[in-house]
């Protein structure tokens, strides 16, 4: 089982490589990838440097090119595919059918992975991407229960990679446009969810308010930790009750079910967080390296160690974690 770690910049890439990643994934510095944030990602030189650093240590590099180009933006995505081929990345992670079609037709040597943004939640969809583009691996959305993951893996024509840890998407990735509904920018069109450009922090008599695109997402009482106003993690009113109507600020953590994932034939665990610091990447990579090694040695007796859980808890959103959709009661 491969450990795939995020690299938002060169220090994070080195942190991932030095702390046990089997592969790192990164993106170009524009809207061709789903972490299009200011100051993040790689220009051509840093990318070449990062690839060389990883290669010297036997770590693979994947390039995320996982947003959806519209006609006027198409040349940028096409150039990015060409650049990925020129750099010789170990895999191109794409979602858009047009991008996959271009990559498969133009650069047959490119190893294609279907991004989580491709929204493939069943093996018929996976067959489509395998037959049409020769996709060899797919990252599946964070919406399947553990038994559904097992069923997909058993019937899939391609390798399956799942999210193991990090910020939790509650919605099917690639099919959530809540962000553009409030701000005009979504992961699909712009490469960002709840973009910082549309966030406001406002002191009011009711407390510190955070807004996204003008919509009130959260009200924090004095002394309360004010988190980032991700749209789906806000407190809203439904039928007179105010609560986290969609999801609480929480992170996904699947350490508990690692033996099940391994047994089912999942080939890789993905760590979310290209927007996070090199310290986060180092901590999470270290814990997951140790966990995967321990689980491999003795899956029957694997238990997540309390110090691992504590370490991961510290870097989690809202300092709490959940199994998310892998666990039926969460649904």
């Amino acid at each position: 089982m491969e450990l795939v770690c995020p690299a938002g910049n060169l220090p994070s890439l080195k942190a991932a490589v030095d702390n046990g990643a089997d592969a790192v994934y990164f993106g170009f510095r524009d809207d061709t990838n789903a972490r299009h944030f200011a100051g993040l990602n790689f220009g051509p030189e840093k990318m070449a440097e990062g690839i060389a650093y990883a290669r010297r240590r036997g770590v693979r590099v994947f390039l995320a090119l996982n947003t959806y180009p519209q006609p006027r933006g198409w040349p940028r995505w096409q150039q990015a595919v060409d650049e990925a081929a020129r750099l010789g990345v170990d895999a191109l992670i794409a979602a858009d059918i047009g991008v996959l079609d271009y990559a498969a037709g133009r650069h047959q040597e490119l190893n294609l992975h279907l991004s989580v943004q491709g929204s493939a939640t069943n093996y018929e969809a996976l067959r489509f991407y395998q037959e049409q583009f020769g996709v060899r691996r797919a990252v599946i959305p964070r919406v399947l229960s553990l038994s559904q993951v097992e069923h997909v893996v058993a019937n899939s024509p391609v390798e399956i990679e799942v999210f193991g840890f990090g910020s939790l998407c509650v919605m099917v990735e690639g099919r959530c446009i809540l962000s553009s509904y409030a701000t005009g920018r979504s992961p699909n069109t712009y490469g960002a969810c709840s973009p910082a450009s549309h966030v406001e922090w406002r002191e009011t008599p009711q407390g510190l308010e955070t807004r996204l695109g003008g919509v009130l997402i959260e009200r924090h009482r004095a002394g309360e930790n004010a988190g980032y106003p991700t749209l789906c993690k806000g407190s809203f009113r439904v039928s007179g009750n105010t609560y986290h109507a969609i999801e609480e600020p929480t992170s996904l953590n699947t350490l508990e079910i690692l033996p099940d994932l391994m047994r089912s034939g999942v080939v890789a665990i993905k760590i979310e967080g290209r927007q996070r610091s090199p310290v986060y990447v180092a901590q999470v990579a270290r814990v997951w390296r140790a966990a995967i090694d321990a689980c491999r040695r003795d899956p029957g007796h694997f238990r997540p160690r309390s110090e691992w859980m504590a370490e991961l808890g510290k870097v989690s959103e809202g300092t709490q974690t959940t199994l998310g959709a892998y666990s039926r009661p969460w649904q």
């Binding site: 964070r142 399947l144 509650v170 969609i246 009661p329 969460w330 649904q331």
Partner: peptide, 20 residues
């Protein structure tokens, strides 16, 4: 407008019920 799909049922959640 249909904006998103999830494994979670938000109507059930509004009633403190699990989807199952």
């Amino acid at each position: 407008l249909p904006l998103a799909y999830s494994a979670r049922c938000f109507t059930a959640r509004a009633h403190n019920l699990p989807k199952d």
